[in-house]
């Protein structure tokens, strides 16, 4: 039950954390002027009108960074329990963790050699 109580606090926190930013934004509704017009609401651009669709295609490099990040992120999920238990573990567990991280480093070296980490 103690466990759940700690999380109940987090639950309450999640429930009201968004009130803090919402209050001033809502409050400014009463204080600020409301005078929209078409020119004012144009999309910001450096002195000229915007051309074409905003949602343009992006280069693949962003996706590759996100992919490499995802792989590392999932590896972390396995490494954190290992790290928590580390003080109670023996040499075998050290070897297991070493191999795990070594394979991770391997993937990084591959990405590096293939120039997948290059900003192009």
């Amino acid at each position: 039950m103690q466990l759940l109580n700690e999380w109940a606090f987090i639950g309450v926190f999640f429930a009201i954390a968004w009130v803090f930013p919402l209050l001033p934004i809502a409050g400014s509704w009463f204080l600020r002027p409301h005078k929209p017009n078409a020119i004012k609401q144009q999309t910001y651009e450096c002195g000229v009108e915007t051309v074409g669709d905003t949602w343009v295609q992006f280069k693949v490099q962003y996706y590759i960074y996100a992919l490499v990040f995802l792989v590392f992120d999932v590896e972390m999920v396995f490494l954190f329990p290992w790290a928590v238990a580390y003080k109670q573990l023996d040499w075998f567990a050290f070897g297991a963790g070493f191999l795990f991280i070594f394979l991770l480093a391997d993937a990084l070296i591959y990405a590096w050699r293939k120039n997948a980490l290059e900003w192009i």
Binding site: F13, A17, W18, F20, P21, L22, P24, I25, G27, S28, L31, R32, P33, H34, K35, P36, A38, K40, Q41, Q42, T43, Y44, T54
Partner: peptide, 28 residues
């Protein structure tokens, strides 16, 4: 607080207003 708040034309209104709230709440 007293500055006019401009929502650009073509913006996705609900999400546009949601973003600053998320931005602040996650740090809290």
């Amino acid at each position: 607080l007293t500055k006019e708040d401009i929502t650009p034309a073509g913006a996705d209104r609900f999400i546009f207003n949601l973003a600053p709230i998320i931005a602040f709440a996650v740090v809290v």
